[in-house]
Design a binder for these strands. Structure first.
Lengths: 108, 108
DNA sequence: TAAGGTGTACGACATGAATCAAACAGATCC
DNA sequence: GGATCTGTTTGATTCATGTCGTACACCTTA
């Protein structure tokens, strides 16, 4: 649970998941992702996602293909994948201030 | 989005959210949480959650009461709160190995 | 066999995050 | 006013993690 949340709470891995989902049902080789990091870093992120149970890998010749574990994902964490895949505005929460917050009466 | 995921992907904050949800509709003062960290650390976590838009705070005398922003939470990230609040087994993903994984034929 | 391509393993580094301790500010109460 | 309670702020420390570079292993193709 925590593992999954932590796995998902990273911009690179978020992008990986989205590209994987967009390519479904096709499987993507590790080298086919469009990301600004090196191969070794990418490999690390794949390991994290795999250990979190979010994707499966299997070898195809010299390449390694990746596939989302969508079924398990949806079963164990219903709604989370859709959330992750939806590109929501990354900046909505305007609730940064604390002093001016008082809803004891207004109830807002 | 990333902000929210990162805010939620922490054991202490996860616990805070759960305790807040369990106490609803009552509001909890910062000092009423059962957690193995100091006040200053707790204050930090509250700031993170608040900035992520996940809770509201308002002062009540010398105390500061906290309340889940459940409505906004559910609206912007449907399902996520329920996921977070459900105490799932924190260790299910047995997919740590990569070499033995080959589903090209079996389709498992 | 040799060469090229694909991905991993390992070591090193930098950055960010969580934590604590101590000091501080406000509010309440005696 | 003085003491106490509650929570924040600041600085320092520790720790985790994301990144890179290099070297390595495996497969494929010529």
């Amino acid at each position: 649970m925590l593992t999954v949340l932590q796995a998902v709470a990273d911009p690179v891995r978020l992008s990986l998941l989205r590209q994987l989902a967009a390519a479904e049902p096709a499987e993507l080789a590790c080298g086919t992702f469009d990301l600004p990091i090196r191969k070794s870093g990418l490999s690390h992120h794949f390991t994290v996602l795999r250990q979190a149970g979010l994707l499966l890998q299997h070898d195809d010749g010299s390449r390694r293909l990746n596939r989302l574990r969508r079924a398990e994902f949806d079963e164990q964490f219903p709604g989370l994948l859709d959330l992750v895949l939806a590109d929501r505005p990354l900046t909505e929460p305007p609730a940064d201030e604390l002093p001016p917050v008082d809803a004891s009466v207004t109830g807002t």
